[in-house]
Design a protein around this nucleic acid. Structure first.
Length: 432
DNA sequence: TCTGGGGTCCTAGGACCC
DNA sequence: TCTGGGGTCCTAGGACCC
């Protein structure tokens, strides 16, 4: 049996722990640049604010309905998440932390009444951390997600499901004759793995509820849709197809991207931004002990605004995999200079580290050395430690890309082939 | 005026090889 | 006039998740 535990309206709940006066009021947490809603209290949901909705569309509710909008504080949420997860781990022997606000727990071998146990863990998280949670229990991940959805709505929207399922819903403890009506009361779009696209196709085919989806023939679903949806159907039928992943593999790609608060036109501003993104991404890279083989850089205009559209990206392979901020930044800035065209209002840019490999094998011999073969591993380690202790960006990389222009031959070479390898040893590097 | 950020998995189709 | 077949690798794009 599996449990899915998640924090209700997680970011809003974190804010409320430290500002109890927000309790009972419509509260929102906004994304970067206060762009759009990323967490809503029940009261804010009742006002009709949608997930991901742009702020300017509902700003008037601050005046008219007492809506409170907060800028996101992600380090706070990360901290609260760690505490919540360590208590949630008490549910059973194996835990998979699935996202900042939810985890799966395998309850195999756990004795006693699982519903009572789940209620006890919920109460403990509420009491010790102050975060309200809901728990779904079922034999597969997809059903556990669905049970969790039932637990939430039974509490939040009285009448949607029987009230006894509020907060904790244990589908595995119910006879099929009681499970079916719950599935029948759940829209097909609520099922984990069914997004807007597939949801619309299913409804068009007359499949509108989770129960109808569960009763489709898996082979037909595979033919008409995909193996992914076939797995979803089987999981709804009670056959586990998606394993619990207790020790997630290191990330295969690492990104740092941002929308700009106001449009960016100048190359110099863009270089500043890209350099900062590289430093952040490289930090994440080193934290998981990896090296990157390529750097991808991109920028584009706003898809929402009128005016000329522009979007470009470029993958810059590195001569050797590296975790060194300076090298990664050099590569990204050079890529940026190659794709940059003046005259566009750019809304967003970013950096992605690709072709990641395990750095522990290669450290010292590859990667964290500078152009003269000196080992920069300790330097990067010290930079990370200082930023960890004193807050991010206490110490940061100067953007080496602005210090020297690259030799013309390299630029010409690079323009001929979009993917190219740069021999950084031939490139002069500015000294700090 | 104002529209998030960071991931994963799967598939189709082309290039290439024997 | 008649012009193979199958395997593998890579990439781009689509769909999904929170």
């Amino acid at each position: 049996m599996l449990a899915l535990l998640d924090g209700n309206n997680f970011y809003v709940s974190c804010e409320r722990v430290f500002r109890p006066s927000l309790e009972g009021r419509p509260v929102l947490v906004l994304s970067n640049n206060d762009g759009c809603a990323i967490s809503r209290s029940n009261e804010a949901k009742a006002l009709g604010v949608k997930m991901g909705q742009p702020f300017h569309e509902f700003r008037h509710l601050e005046e008219s309905a007492g809506l409170i909008s907060l800028s996101a504080n992600f380090s706070l949420y990360g901290d609260m998440s760690e505490r919540m997860m360590s208590l949630a781990a008490g549910l059973g022997p194996t835990q998979e932390i699935y996202s900042i606000d939810e985890c799966f727990v395998d309850l195999d071998g756990v004795r006693g009444d699982l519903t009572i146990r789940a209620h006890a863990i919920r109460a403990r998280i509420q009491r010790w951390i102050g975060i309200p949670t809901c728990i779904g229990l079922a034999p597969t991940k997809t059903l556990a997600k669905l049970a969790n959805h039932v637990a939430k709505d039974a509490e939040r929207k009285p009448g949607s499901y029987p009230a006894r399922h509020a907060q904790v819903c244990h589908l595995g403890a119910l006879p099929q004759a009681e499970v079916d009506p719950l599935l029948a009361a759940t829209g097909v779009g609520e099922v984990w793995g069914v997004g807007p696209r597939i949801g619309a196709q299913l409804r068009e085919a007359g499949v509108t509820t989770a129960l109808q989806l569960a009763r489709l023939d898996p082979a037909l679903v595979r033919r008409r849709w995909s193996v992914v949806l076939e797995r979803t159907v089987r999981e709804l039928q009670g056959t586990p197809c998606i394993d619990l992943d207790a020790a997630p593999a290191p990330k295969r790609e690492i990104a740092c991207t941002r929308s700009f608060g106001r449009p960016v036109r100048e190359l110099s501003q863009l270089i500043e931004a890209i350099s900062a993104f590289c430093a952040r991404a490289a930090e994440k890279l080193r934290r998981q002990g990896s090296l990157a083989g390529c750097v991808q850089v991109f920028a584009h205009t706003s898809p929402f605004r009128p005016g000329p559209r522009w979007a470009k990206s470029l993958v810059v392979p590195l001569r050797r995999p590296t975790g060194d901020t300076a090298r990664l930044t050099q590569a990204a800035v050079m890529g940026l200079k190659l794709i940059y065209e003046p005259g566009y209002d750019l809304a967003k840019a970013g950096v992605m580290l690709l072709d990641l490999c395990d750095g522990r094998i290669q450290q010292g011999e590859l990667g964290l050395e500078d152009e003269w073969g000196r080992d920069r591993g300790p330097l990067m380690g010290a930079v990370d430690a200082i930023n960890m202790r004193w807050g991010k960006s206490t110490i940061r990389q100067g953007s080496t890309g602005t210090a020297r222009t690259r030799p013309d031959w390299a630029m010409r070479q690079a323009r001929r082939t979009p993917r190219y390898t740069t021999d950084w040893r031939q490139v002069p590097v500015a000294r700090a």
